[in-house]
């Protein structure tokens, strides 16, 4: 069954258009949400998490309409939302904090067992008695994720959870997310194309409040097919070019006739999309 069905979602803040005619559907599995800063990702996630309503459009989440109070409550009971920079009560222990959220999620029976379960799921068994202010950034992010996973939500929304984590922490976090995505719907907003390529079954690319791409990660890479090449010197006319570790330049754009074409990555496809979109926007 489709977990989220959105049709023509729009939202304006004063004169700024945050979202315009956004339509998509989400099913089980991990969906990545890519886009530059200010693309409207966080706004979209906040709408899906019932924190704010959209100005226009149709939205059904888990079979309910979040515009009414009853529908919103129904969604919230089956939702896990990890916002960007979740705040913590620094003087709570990890257990106390997750337990506090558990009460707010109205988990009454077996609450402590549930708290222990989610803390175990995120690998915080050994740290649940530590105060949050004594935890590292990665650990805190896990506390947030544990609170998100309480009561086994059907829809999990994660807003840039891998920001600020070191490579090892990020790797572990990805494993966790992949695990969470088994049998439920996860929407993962991120700047990291690696996150998408490693854990996402689908990907949505947003720019300037609109959806630019929706499909499988391999299809996103395919957007740049035939438009990525390497050269010994920086190529004129490339949309983007950078020097790689072996000294060659990696170029994206319209290749010259004699170019040495290479297989595009998801990042190449993403950059093609964003650049094309901003060029179109500028024109």
């Amino acid at each position: 069954m489709t977990t989220v069905q959105a049709e023509g979602l729009s939202l304006r803040f004063g004169r700024t258009t945050a979202l315009e005619g956004v339509s998509f559907a989400l099913d089980d599995g991990v969906t990545g949400l890519l886009g530059p800063n200010g693309a409207g990702k966080t706004t979209l996630l906040r709408i899906l998490a019932t924190a704010i309503p959209a100005d226009a459009g149709q939205l059904r989440i888990l079979g309910a309409d979040p515009r009414g109070a009853a529908g919103r409550l129904a969604v919230r009971r089956r939702l896990g939302y990890l916002p960007q920079n979740p705040g913590f009560h620094q003087h709570f222990t990890a257990f106390e904090f997750v337990d506090y959220i558990a009460i707010l999620k109205e988990i009454v029976d077996g609450r402590h067992d549930e708290v222990r379960r989610v803390l175990h799921a995120v690998g915080l068994d050994d740290h649940r008695g530590k105060k949050i202010k004594a935890l590292s950034g990665g650990m805190r992010q896990r506390v947030g994720l544990a609170a998100t996973l309480l009561d086994d939500p059907a829809l999990v929304i994660l807003d840039e959870p891998t920001v600020g984590l070191d490579p090892e922490q990020r790797l572990r976090f990805r494993e966790l997310i992949a695990h969470i995505g088994e049998g439920r719907t996860v929407l993962l907003s991120t700047h990291q194309t690696e996150d998408v390529s490693t854990v996402c079954q689908r990907v949505i690319v947003m720019n300037q409040g609109r959806i630019r791409f929706e499909g499988e990660p391999s299809a996103l890479a395919a957007v740049a097919m035939g438009r990525v090449w390497t050269s010994r010197a920086r190529a004129d006319g490339a949309l983007a070019a950078w020097r790689t570790g072996n000294g060659d330049y990696h170029n994206i754009g319209d290749p010259p006739p004699d170019a040495r074409l290479v297989d595009p990555s998801i990042e190449d496809g993403y950059l093609m999309l964003i650049d094309a979109a901003s060029l179109a926007g500028a024109a």
């Binding site: 019932t50 924190a51 916002p83 979740p86 705040g87 707010l104 999620k105 109205e106 609170a147």
Partner: peptide, 18 residues
Amino acid sequence: DDPATRSTLTVPTPRLAR
């Protein structure tokens, strides 16, 4: 004052009750 307000934004328990 609630530094954890972002974490409790979408819990079923309404703000009025909190």
